[in-house]
Design a protein around this nucleic acid. Structure first.
Lengths: 187, 187
DNA sequence: AAGCGGGTAGATCGATCGGTCTATCTATGT
DNA sequence: ACATAGATAGACCGATCGATCTACCCGCTT
């Protein structure tokens, strides 16, 4: 039959760890993760080799989801590269306003994992490169003279918005960043 | 005589913790802090009441020092508000380029201390308010129509620069941010 | 000389950390 | 019917966490 079978331990661990690691930081205890996922201790080490492996996999799938979210956001904004880029900042405005938001999870992971050799850093680096390329592509389509440089600037605005959104609640950093993004785009 | 007496245990703990907490994160062990400061265990609890008290005091003194650094940077740039504001981004460029830099310590503290009630959050919040006011004052002197809003934007650029400087080594985010800062100022 | 406050050194506490282990249960395939 | 793979529950490991405690030592005042 193989029906009515809910998500397996690997899936449950990933989704539970995704939420718990973001809300509690990368230093959450293994016990808390297992309890939240309702998974046996052994399953964690079978599927991920350890806590670090789980962290890496959580970040990887989150990065895929977030990159897809950006793509979806841009596609929903039509074909004009200007609109597609500005839509990203509108979307970030929504993200920052979501309850429970408290900063960029990738920056949090990088800051929380002291060891520079931790494999999680590669994931976050790749994710940023991916977003940068996403932005640069639109800027190129826009005919921007320096798409790479402009993408750098948009990335600064994005990271700044996420940081300010986490640390200065009540303000609307996404709207302020969007204005600057318009200036970056308009050239 | 009371001479030739080096810094006391409180001073040593503060300076050692300042470096160690930034380089290792707020989760450094108490043992590591004591060892780095060459201080008896008891002294920590006598002077700061515990690890949390030490963290708070470290952040407070660091915030004072950083705010003073911003003021000094602006004063060294002369009296023109434009020059004074742009000098901040040049200074941030230096900071980001310093060996061992790996992000804004205040954001790292906020992200590392999960408990929203931790007293350290008040310190970081006050620091940001302080910087915001510093920027807004110059913008007002510049005759900017919306100094508060512009200060918000400069703060986004600053936080974004620090984040990108930490996560995308090799790039020069301060220079890119400075261009956008010029646009914010020029109105 | 005596007393005292501030400092050091280090044992010790219970809790928790990440990780390994054994034992048991269950569903599947043959 | 039986064997096997995958999952669970939970004991257990050494290490480390933050914090408390005792014992000692030094320099100062009186």
């Amino acid at each position: 039959m193989t029906v009515r079978t809910g998500p397996g331990p690997r899936e449950r661990l990933l989704t539970a760890a995704d939420q718990l690691i973001y809300s509690q930081g990368v230093n959450v205890g293994v016990d808390a993760l297992l309890k939240a996922a309702n998974v046996a201790r052994r399953s964690l080490y079978e599927h991920f080799g350890g806590k670090d492996g789980l962290i890496v996999e959580v970040l990887r799938s989150a990065a895929d989801a977030d990159a897809a979210d950006y793509r979806r956001t841009m596609d929903a904004a039509g074909h004009d590269p200007r609109e597609r880029l500005l839509a990203v900042f509108d979307r970030i405005g929504e993200i920052v306003a979501m309850p429970g938001f408290h900063g960029c999870r990738y920056l949090a992971a990088d800051l929380g994992l002291t060891d520079p050799g931790h494999p999680a850093h590669e994931i976050t680096r790749d994710y940023r490169r991916q977003v940068h390329e996403l932005l640069a592509r639109e800027l190129t389509a826009l005919g921007h003279p320096h798409p790479d440089h402009a993408a750098d600037q948009l990335l600064i605005l994005i990271d700044g918005t996420l940081a300010v959104g986490a640390t200065r609640p009540g303000t609307n950093p996404a709207a302020a960043a969007r204005e600057l993004a318009e200036h970056v785009i308009t050239l």
